[in-house]
Amino acid sequence: MPALAAGRNGLLTATDVHVSDYPTVEAMRWIGQTLERETRGRLRIRLYHSGQLGREAEAIDMARFGAIDFARVYSGALNNAFPLTRALCLPYAFDSVAHMRRSMDGEVGRAVLDGFSGRGLVGLAIYDSGARCFYNARRPIRTPADLHGMKIRVPVSDIFIRLLRQFGANATPLSLGEVYSGMETRMIDGAENNIRSFHSSRHFEAARYWSQSEHSYAPDVLLLSRRTWDALDAGDRELLRDAARRSVAVMREAWDASEAAAREEVLAAGIEANEVDIDAFRAAAAPLLAGYRRDPRIEALYAQIRATA
């Protein structure tokens, strides 16, 4: 029996800021069920969803130092500590969900996951996070000029902070859990995220305008504490890595169904949705994109991403 299983009675801990039925939570729950079945109960996962263990930045540190085992986090939250993840967050790097999935299933995904080694983490899987778009309480966004003067929540990521400034908005870094109250109190005017999170977080109750900018398809990442990995024997490591790999299909199936349902429900609730001038947004984002591409590591990954378009 591996040292970890002996020390914790085989119970592993996992965290996700999203709600219980969110696709990434369902994927991690599936991993736990698979481990429990394949080891006849010797390995199990206790899953803390809905941000019960705090914000994503805290989850990353807890996993790095072994306080928890698994952390599902948004790639934007990893940009500063793990530079290769910046390639996944660049504006208009991906053309669609299908394009993003092809890239993550190939060399780009493998390179990013390998990039966590040596920093206290093991990269296990890359999950969808949909098309990130703008929503707000003031007006439709059709061009970057419509964002001028607006306070828009962004993840705590330099790329997104700089991107919103390129668009003319006042970028306001906040954790996901602070967005609803921020809009209610008018500390912020809106945010940017995928429509599944827009629905599950109930942000559509405070922000009545949805603008289909699709400025990023930055995915989520499933991470494991390196300390946990080192405590497992070879057989359990292989079982865990295989379960994580297979969980991607589980997550994608749940994502596709729930994203469509979320869109129907927010539109039925009276949300005003509009298309945007994509060319105008691409042009506004171009200087930021060019700046990040000066890094040879990012440029190499970006070139591979575009090659799979």
Rank of each mutant, 00 (worst) to 15 (best):
A98C: 06
V25H: 05
V250A: 00
G291L: 03
S201Q: 09
T85Q: 05
S50R: 10
R306D: 11
A111W: 00
S75G: 06
D295T: 13
I271M: 15
S175H: 10
E264P: 05
T13H: 08
R138K: 13
S75C: 11
A290V: 09
N79Q: 14
Y180L: 15
I31N: 08
A3L: 11
A125G: 10
H99A: 11
N136E: 03
Y74V: 11
G149D: 03
D279V: 11
I278R: 15
G190H: 13
A3Y: 03
G10M: 04
L223M: 07
A283R: 15
L84V: 00
A59K: 03
E272F: 07
S247L: 03
A3D: 12
M100N: 04
G177R: 02
S197R: 02
A303Q: 13
R119S: 14
S197I: 06
A169Y: 14
R132T: 03
Y127E: 13
S75Q: 00
H199S: 09
R263W: 12
D233W: 04
T13S: 08
G190C: 10
S117F: 03
A234E: 15
A59D: 14
V179I: 15
A284G: 11
L240E: 09
T308W: 04
V19D: 01
A137F: 05
T15R: 00
M251S: 12
A234D: 15
T39K: 07
I161H: 02
S175M: 09
R153Q: 13
L174R: 14
A81S: 10
F82G: 06
R202W: 02
D128K: 08
R196V: 02
P83E: 06
L47P: 08
P140T: 07
H215E: 04
E238D: 14
A290S: 14
S247I: 02
I152T: 00
H18D: 14
N194Q: 01
S200N: 09
R8F: 12
A249G: 01
Y209F: 15
R237M: 13
D16N: 12
I298W: 09
L124F: 07
E265N: 04
R293L: 15
H203G: 00
V108A: 02
L232T: 11
E238M: 11
L163F: 12
